[in-house]
């Protein structure tokens, strides 16, 4: 099968475009998705190709974007709604949690909610406290919603297609820093990666590093550095925070007996907390060392570059964490 070396934003664009061609019910809506071609240019050319019926610019109305996507999905369309960045999805929290994630259950299966809400996520470039959130674990707290966050262009394509084809509501977050990064992506319009399946991004035997999104990049960099010192790390990209691929993590842990969890998000009630809890509940007999967590610091993100970076995780922090338990 043919592959192309393209940046993640192009992989996402390809996924979206192919799904719109494949299924008339799929459409996009959000701020600046039309003439502006998307804040992150994922919908470049869409207005020309698909027209204003299927490429719908919205007002700056996050509650209505998420809520109208729920209604349209319940009624049989397959909206791919976009909220510019996840920082603004807090305004849509109610529609997502109380309605997208609940209507199927609350009305005992009378409705399906085949919607995707795409949000850019992540910090960087001194975006400051209100514009630097990576709150995936907060949203992943709630049953009824799926949450995916790809770390490579190929994953981005296969995961977004899976999200669009699935009959459940999916919050799909895209790391801003990864949009321009290239990778090999299959051309196949039916390249779909199953929801809830994680991926071993690097095989190893001494320590399991569990990550998602940008954390995968730091983990791979750390694994490379550690390999030079003879420490072999297995890097697992969960890809989906919900459903979470616990079997994949457990299998790796049975082999390594050690684990470091890496995330861009905050440490309290976090991704790392959940993985650590799962491991101690289910894998206690295999545990040879405390589970280590690498995350952002427990502060709002400041503006000044020097202290911004201080607050954030990176490959060196992952290396340090691994060395503490090896």
């Amino acid at each position: 099968m043919a592959e192309k070396n393209i940046p993640m934003r192009e992989a996402l664009r390809a996924a979206l475009r192919e799904e719109m061609i494949r299924d008339e019910r799929v459409f996009v809506m959000g701020q600046e998705v039309g003439a502006w071609e998307g804040t992150h240019k994922v919908t470049r050319g869409f207005l020309d190709e698909f027209g204003a019926r299927r490429v719908r610019d919205t007002p700056i109305s996050e509650m209505a974007i998420a809520g109208a996507a729920v209604g349209a999905a319940m009624a049989g369309l397959r909206p791919v709604a976009e909220i510019m960045t996840i920082n603004f999805a807090f305004l849509a929290f109610d529609a997502l949690i109380n309605h997208a994630a609940k209507v199927r259950y609350m009305f005992d299966g009378q409705f399906k909610v085949p919607m995707v809400l795409r949000c850019a996520t992540g910090w960087g470039n001194q975006a400051t406290a209100t514009h630097s959130h990576t709150p995936e674990p907060v949203f992943a707290h709630f049953p009824g919603l799926y949450l995916g966050c790809p770390s490579t262009p190929a994953d981005a394509k296969g995961m977004l297609k899976a999200a669009i084809r699935d009959d459940n509501p999916v919050l799909f977050t895209e790391v801003i820093a990864l949009y321009p990064k290239p990778g090999l992506v299959p051309d196949d319009p039916d390249f779909v990666l199953p929801i809830g399946k994680g991926d071993i991004k690097r095989a190893g035997k001494d320590v399991t590093i569990v990550a998602y999104g940008r954390g995968v990049e730091w983990s791979l960099d750390a694994a490379e550095m550690l390999a030079r010192e003879g420490i072999s790390c297995e890097v697992i990209d969960v890809r989906w925070l919900r459903p979470l691929d616990l079997p994949l993590i457990f299998e790796s842990f049975k082999k390594t007996n050690r684990c470091v969890v890496v995330e861009e998000s905050l440490p309290f009630y976090s991704f790392g907390s959940e993985i650590a809890a799962q491991l101690q509940e289910h894998m206690f007999d295999y545990m040879d060392a405390p589970i280590k967590r690498v995350s952002a610091m427990d502060v709002p993100l400041p503006y000044a570059k020097e202290i911004e970076l201080m607050a954030l995780p990176d490959a060196h922090k992952v290396v340090a964490a691994v060395k503490e338990i090896i």
């Binding site: 998420a66 809520g67 209604g71 349209a72 319940m74 009624a75 369309l77 109610d94 309605h99 409705f111």
Partner: peptide, 30 residues
């Protein structure tokens, strides 16, 4: 709710069903 008679439900978050109504109407427009 009773989907068979197109009663899309009662919603207990004040105002929460309004954008859903817009979304259902969008289906008809679409």
């Amino acid at each position: 709710a009773d989907v068979n008679v197109r009663m899309w439900g009662g919603y207990a978050i004040v105002g929460g069903h309004l954008p859903l109504a817009a979304g259902i109407a969008l289906k008809s427009k679409y």
